[in-house]
Computed example of a mutant assay.
Amino acid sequence: MRGADRKRAEVLRMMLDPVRPDVPADIVRRATERGARLLRRRRAARRVIWTLLIVALIVFGVWASAAHPWSVPPTETTPPLEDW
């Protein structure tokens, strides 16, 4: 038997088996709580990422306005004057 045929036979056997495993009564409540917890974590992570991005942009803006990285530094073509 190939792998796919074996899997198909096992699935058919499980579907036709009259004895089914017991499902916990509170499975819906637990799944709902877990889903809500995952959503809260994702939402919190998204907020943290956006907050860090906004803070980084503000810090960059403040640094750029103070340092003026776009302006050309003055050239020093003349040597300094010493003992005239």
Rank of each mutant, 00 (worst) to 15 (best):
M1W: 03
M1I: 07
R6V: 00
R8F: 01
V11P: 00
L12M: 05
L12A: 05
R13S: 09
M14F: 11
D17M: 05
V19Y: 07
R20A: 14
P24Y: 09
P24C: 08
A25E: 09
I27F: 14
I27L: 14
V28G: 07
R29V: 08
R29L: 08
R30K: 10
A31G: 11
A31S: 12
R37Q: 12
L38K: 11
L39Y: 15
L39E: 14
R41M: 05
R41Y: 07
R41I: 02
A45T: 03
R46G: 00
R46H: 11
R47C: 00
I49R: 12
I49K: 15
W50K: 07
W50F: 05
W50C: 04
L52V: 11
L52D: 12
L53F: 03
I54N: 06
V55F: 05
V55T: 15
V55W: 05
A56C: 05
A56M: 05
L57P: 02
V59F: 15
V59D: 15
G61S: 12
G61A: 11
G61N: 14
V62W: 00
W63M: 07
S65R: 14
S65E: 03
S65N: 13
A66N: 15
A66C: 08
H68F: 02
H68C: 08
P69H: 05
S71F: 03
S71W: 03
S71C: 06
T75S: 05
E76Q: 13
T77A: 07
P80H: 07
E82H: 09
W84N: 04
